[in-house]
Design a binder for these strands. Structure first.
Length: 480
RNA sequence: GGCCCUAUGGUCAAGUGGUUAAGACAUCGCCCUUUCACGGCGGUAACCCGAGUUCGAACCUCGGUAGGGUCACCA
């Protein structure tokens, strides 16, 4: 049984997963799901030097949070394993030798020094095919003598290798521009690209989806498929995601990394939704889409050929959309720990605060700053009371705060409606506009110019006792 | 340097020979409003340059320019 579509995501466990890597995986996932195929996870851990402890677990965690379930992987055998490259090392040598037999590769005994001398004026080394046509007997003799060797690809001469990329169209490269590259290193291990070809074929990958860094070397790999007599897969190369006009996102600097965004309080779905749109656009131009909608709408035509710059501001907006789309209850659950952390164990109504925060934050980590007034209250700048349009200045504020004190002092029913009624009535009695009193009262009880809600809401949240204490403090401050 | 690729507002992008060149983010202004936010309305802002093909080019061709990728016994 062969699946019509099998795609794979092959990250290396060398650190964080930035959204560029994730997006490549996402497209492979969407493509497989869209076509009812299989999505496979393969861990490319041959680079032991750069290996990072815990990175494999991070990959599992990320895919799980991102909602990208895989059908086969290291922890989910589908009969094409093992799915971890270091566990497949014995396979490659065998295939390299087979390729020699088939005439698609040859043994090379050139040493480092000889290769060094091949550098041209640009410092580019191109192998001169020195060992390409060694007599068979000589090869066997040197092999038997235990001479170190590598196996190189025997690139056919005088041909043009071309293929049809699903996003870039026809790509063709003259074989004269393709080097007889090393397939199997002198330590018996495969080069990365050879391992890839072998793995992709053995795992039955039908559509290779990866970054454009492989766009121009793919003709070379296709020649290997050809030499083996294997069917070539289809290719979908994806343009890079940049951090600015000239630099790609980099793992090394921890740019735009998925887990950081999660830690900052971006909903995972929002991140996924945003990156899906970074380099792809659905036919109907929708923006906010669920995973299911992405799967249904995903199509190759919508993929862009040019690099895109990652824009956190837009992702932030997307995050806000997801947060606002939550029900009160969902938002309460999502924001709860952020709020609890912000109020430091004080007795405030978390539910009430959640409802205040709901339309006011794009990402959850904005919460502490917005709730700072609950913990911090002290001497503040009286200029905050000056507001032209509201016709308020420090003199008006003095009066307004007193009116608020009188209005609220005798109030026992500490609810929004009751507070509003009292303040409105007392303002009218004092010959002031309700808005003026509320404006001053809000500042008087928060000490802040900008607050997450109006005077009434702030009063309810603070509670009567704290509210009165702050009003008194402010009144005294104003009198000085 | 050789080879491969790309080029629409600040950003993401629609557009596939005839359009007033969409939409979103950001930005600015207005409305709503007890500040902020939400919501609503509106504004500023783009086809890299030069030839060619064509009645007509953002779209096709060529050449520049700019940017990216790749040329390892790294992955």
């Amino acid at each position: 049984m062969t699946d019509i579509v099998r795609t794979r995501f092959a990250p290396s466990p060398t650190g964080f997963m930035h959204i560029g890597n994730l997006r490549t995986g996402l497209y492979a996932f969407l493509f497989a799901r869209k076509h009812g195929g299989k999505f496979i996870l393969r861990i490319e851990d041959t680079d032991q030097e750069r290996k990072v402890e815990g990175a494999v677990e991070m990959i599992y965690r990320t895919l799980q949070k991102a909602g990208m379930s895989y059908d086969e992987g290291p922890d989910k055998d589908g009969g094409y394993g093992p799915y971890v490259q270091t566990m497949r090392m014995d396979i490659y040598k065998q295939y390299a030798e087979k390729l020699v037999e088939l005439g698609g590769a040859y043994y090379c005994f050139c040493d480092k020094e000889r290769l060094e001398r091949l550098g041209d004026e640009n410092g580019v080394h191109t192998y001169d095919k020195h060992c390409r046509n060694l007599p068979k007997e000589e090869v066997e003799r040197r092999l038997a003598a235990g001479e170190p060797y590598v196996i190189r690809q025997k690139v056919p001469e005088g041909v043009v290798s071309e293929y049809e990329d699903m996003v870039f169209g026809k790509i063709s490269v003259d074989s004269a521009d393709i080097e007889d590259g090393v397939l199997l290193k002198s330590d018996g291990l495969p080069t990365y690209n050879f391992a890839n070809v072998i793995d992709d074929h053995l795992m039955g990958i039908t559509h290779v989806i990866r970054g454009t860094e492989y766009l121009s070397s793919t003709p070379k790999y296709n020649l290997i498929y050809d030499a083996f007599g294997w069917e070539r897969p289809k290719y979908m190369h994806l343009p890079p995601i940049m951090k600015d006009a000239t630099r790609k996102l980099s793992k090394r600097y921890g740019d735009a990394n998925f887990e950081d965004f999660i830690a900052k309080g971006y909903p995972a779905e929002a991140i996924v939704n945003y990156i899906a749109l970074l380099g792809w656009c659905p036919k109907d131009n929708r923006e906010k889409m669920s995973m299911q909608e992405l799967i249904e709408a995903f199509d190759t035509d919508g993929i862009s050929k040019s690099a895109s710059i990652f824009d956190e501001a837009k992702m932030r907006w997307m995050s806000g959309e997801y947060l606002k789309a939550m029900s009160e209850e969902e938002f309460f659950e999502a924001s709860r720990e952020w709020i609890e952390r912000a109020i430091e164990g004080k007795e405030f109504d978390v539910k009430e605060l959640a409802s205040l925060m709901h339309t006011r934050v794009d990402i959850l980590s904005e919460i502490p700053e917005k709730l700072k007034f609950l913990n911090e209250f002290g001497v503040y700048d009286l200029n905050m009371y000056v507001h032209q349009k509201m016709k308020v200045d420090v003199e008006v504020a003095k009066k307004a705060v007193k009116v608020a004190i009188c209005a609220l002092d005798g109030l026992d029913d500490w609810t929004a409606d009751a507070i509003k009624q009292r303040v409105t009535d007392f303002a009218a009695e004092a010959g002031m506009k309700a808005g003026q009193v509320m404006f001053c009262m809000r500042i008087a009880i928060t000490g802040a110019q900008v607050t997450p809600g109006g005077a009434i809401e702030m009063a309810v949240v603070l509670g009567k006792r704290e509210c009165m204490r702050r009003l008194t403090f402010s009144s005294e401050l104003l009198e000085k």
